[in-house]
């Protein structure tokens, strides 16, 4: 990539700024390949004598990262699937079907958009306990989906409102019912909105900490961020493990993002601006 001459003054400011912003990543990755003694010297510019890949092997086995990643994947898959199954039909119903009380139901959902999950955590915990869903991935998925539904419905509804009514009418004259219109006409049309919904719910679920902290108690059901915090507080005496464990948690997402960055960025921006 050859920089344009016109860009040079801006690049002179932007390149150092970018370096500072990614510096924590670089420092972590370099430190994660050092021995405990090298970290103990505390010189951020020093490179490791030999690359300690062993740190990763140790962190992986000690921290149980395979399980944590597995749990996180199940968690994300569950949330994304349920979000699509609930929000797409609901968004359609609230935009393309006229029925008494429609506005009411919509406002009830919008109300949820303003209530942070921290503010309902005590009874939410009781509900989950009552249903036997505490300490289970099912429980966390249902709670997260319920928390995400207001946004998802808002997003899908705004998108469907933008689809001309003529399309629905034409389909109805052809004798199609709402289910058929939704699945055959609207689903293919709404790929961008669904893509946004998938990306936003996947990212927020993957990174969620508060609900897992409260709901997922035993280590065998915990998700990655929670597992890492537990790992970091158990092994504070071993910085090499904490550093390599941390890199394990963020590297896969970063690689996935770089590979899909255009779609990812589009989905995220569109979704956020609509929602």
């Amino acid at each position: 990539m050859i920089p344009s001459r016109k860009d040079l003054p801006m690049l002179a400011a932007l390149v150092p700024a970018t370096f500072v912003i990614v510096a924590p990543f670089l420092w972590l990755i370099i430190s994660s390949l050092k021995t405990e003694a090298e970290i103990g010297v505390g010189d951020p510019f020093a490179l490791p004598d030999a690359l300690m890949w062993q740190n990763y092997v140790d962190a992986w086995s000690v921290g149980g990262f395979a399980d944590l990643i597995g749990n996180s994947l199940i968690n994300v898959a569950g949330v994304v699937l349920l979000m699509l199954l609930t929000c797409v039909p609901a968004g359609y119903a609230l935009s393309k079907i006229r029925f008494p009380g429609r506005e009411w139901i919509f406002y009830a959902f919008i109300f949820g958009l303003t209530i942070p999950v921290q503010a309902i955590i005590i009874p939410l915990y009781q509900v989950l306990t009552g249903l036997g869903l505490i300490n289970s991935l099912t429980g966390i998925v249902l709670a997260q989906v319920s928390n995400g539904i207001p946004f998802g419905i808002f997003l899908m509804r705004s998108f469907f409102l933008g689809v001309p009514n003529e399309l629905t009418e034409a389909a109805r004259i052809d004798g199609a019912n709402h289910f058929q219109i939704l699945t055959q006409v609207f689903l293919p049309l709404s790929m961008p909105a669904m893509q946004a919904l998938v990306i936003i719910s996947a990212l927020s679920t993957w990174n969620d900490f508060f609900l897992p902290l409260v709901v997922l108690i035993s280590p065998d059901v915990q998700t990655l961020p929670l597992g890492l915090v537990r790992f970091a507080s158990t092994y504070t005496t071993s910085y090499r493990l904490v550093f390599s464990g941390t890199v394990i948690t963020f590297l896969p997402v970063i690689i996935l993002f770089i590979l899909t960055q255009r779609r990812f960025t589009e989905g995220l921006t569109q979704g956020a601006l609509k929602g």
Binding site: T129, N135, I217, S218, R230
Partner: peptide, 22 residues
């Protein structure tokens, strides 16, 4: 053996007891 996730001061014990998997 269930590995402890904390103690009473940080709420981990309470959380574990309240869960069915305690």
């Amino acid at each position: 053996y269930m590995p402890p996730t904390g103690n009473i001061s940080d709420g981990a014990v309470q959380a574990a007891i309240q869960s069915e998997a305690g």
